[in-house]
Amino acid sequence: MTASTPVPAGSQPFTTKDYRSNLKPIWCAGCGDFGVATALYRALAAVGRPPHEIALVSGIGCSSRIPGYTNCYGFNSIHGRALPIAQGIKLANPDLLVLVAGGDGDGFSIGGNHVAHAIRRNVDLTYICMDNQIYGLTKGQLSPTSPRGLKTVSSSYGSFEEPVNPLLYCLAYGAGFVAQGAPADMDGLTALIEAGIRYPGFAFINVQSPCVTYGEEKFQLKAQKLRLEKLEALGHDPADFMKATERARAYGEKLYTGIYYRCPSPAATFESMARERRQELQSRAASRSSILDLFQTA
């Protein structure tokens, strides 16, 4: 069974609580990450893979604590490097369901390089970026998605920089699945994560996950509920790349949720091509023990 193999309705063997670990989150009360975790558990239950066949990899940051709160094989790694580690896991064992989670700093600052290459490799990962426009764990510095002019402890007089646009970034590098969700719409967020998991290739889901301690008022859940516009309700066609790009440009101004882009004809994944190459070449192999025969001169 692969990640994208749907489990028939009514036969789900696992429930939401099967994916929740018994560790108590360190997140602040009211943190958006609680909503992301709950949506993740629900989406995993809907997909129905047993917890031991799931690997969830994160970097460092508040949001990167999420593997500890999830019952599966978790890996809370180092800052910015969740994607390379997750790719190693998936390539080593393509039968696993591999998810990546982390913050905007992890994905678009210290680890920004890896996003582009994970996309062009098209490894079948679901990457959830919990975007809160701030560095929470280190107590309130600028993040790569902080709006220009934001005053923080590291930008006392206001920042000079334009924010990274994670949606446009991933679309530009050719991601086959790009979506945005928010905990203000739990059903929508759950459905997006499930759709990302079922997409047979690299899937990117940006989640507007507000920081209740250091975040701006306009990013909090209450404000989110008022600002949120569902792409579906706008008649958005996820197969329309140009329209997706256009709407992604509104990142920071508009809060669209839903699937911006889902490639109607998904490209082959790295791991499927690797499998073919192995099948093609394995017949040519001598045993591992006779590898030194390659150096014979006679």
Binding site: R81, P84, A86, Q87, G88, I89, A92
Partner: peptide, 9 residues
């Protein structure tokens, strides 16, 4: 990083 992941796997 990928090596670390593969080893974990």
């Amino acid at each position: 990083g990928a090596v670390v992941g593969a080893s974990f796997a």
